[in-house]
Design a protein around this nucleic acid. Structure first.
Length: 258
DNA sequence: ATGACTTGCGCGGCAAGA
């Protein structure tokens, strides 16, 4: 079972890259973030033509998440805990996996900049809701994967120039504390379950030649339930997708579960 | 270096991103 996640930075701008990635990498489940369109504008027919089922949780202009799966599935939209939250940042699916199921969420966690504003308090509140939901899911003792753009740099080794991020919403202590709280519940950061290596990035800014200088950060993560971590085989960051013409500023990251 | 780039919206530049 191959599960991939990618912040596409507009699915309509990235449709050809997405289709190429699906053809080449053949994930069983593909989580997308920042589709930046309403559900009706998603390139559904093109994706379905490659044999995928599609569930979207879009919105006009901003945000928007989706899950694609070769197996048909049921999806639920929105992160529990705040009925008044109108931002489309969470979709969850229950997907057949052999004789059992895997639950997969596609997450676009708020950026939160600038700090000391309501944007940062929204980020922290959203993380608190995610922690509460993860705690509920863990009670089910299922295989599940929370995949997406967390907008969290977990550690100094996850940035080329960590000093530049010291005061940023992606690295401030309250942000990292909440990410650790997820891990402390018993979730595994899939990449860190396989390596302690520094310099494994998933995002490079469009500006200032960040890609050419490898001035990146690791902010796209797959968090695994204990039952999913038991099955973890491998983790790959598909850096080549950042090297294409008209790329997303994020690279996909994927896991294989046995 | 106060910069640098890419989106959506919609047709003029602004907001948002990270």
């Amino acid at each position: 079972m191959r599960i991939a996640t990618w912040n596409v930075n507009s699915v309509r701008q990235r449709t050809e890259h997405l289709l190429a990635y699906l053809r080449e990498t053949k994930p069983d489940v593909m989580c997308l973030q920042e589709i930046k369109c309403v559900d009706e504008a998603f390139p559904r027919a093109e994706v379905e033509a490659l044999g995928y089922n599609v569930a979207t949780h879009g919105q006009k202009t901003f945000n928007g998440v989706a899950i694609l799966s070769k197996q048909p599935f049921e999806a639920t939209r929105g992160l529990p805990g705040d009925e008044s939250d109108g931002q489309s940042r969470y979709i969850e699916a229950i997907i057949p996996f052999g004789e059992t199921i895997v639950r997969v969420a596609s997450i676009y966690l708020p950026n939160g900049n600038p700090p000391l504003t309501e944007k940062y308090s929204y980020k922290l509140a959203w993380m608190d809701r995610l922690i509460a939901h993860a705690r509920d899911l863990l009670k089910l003792e299922e295989c599940f994967v929370l995949a997406g753009d967390y907008n969290v740099i977990p550690d100094a080794r996850d940035a080329k120039d960590i000093a530049a991020w010291a005061g940023d919403a992606l690295y401030l202590p309250p942000t990292r504390e909440r990410f650790r709280e997820l891990l402390n519940l018993g979730l595994a950061d899939a990449l860190r379950a396989t390596t302690d290596e520094a310099g494994l990035y998933t995002f490079w800014d469009y500006q200032a030649g960040a890609w050419q200088r490898n001035n990146g950060i690791r902010i796209d993560h797959l968090l695994l339930s204990p039952q999913a971590a038991d099955r973890l085989q491998s983790v790959v960051i598909d850096r080549h997708m950042r090297a294409l013409e008209k790329p997303s500023d994020h690279a996909p990251i994927r896991v294989d579960l046995a």
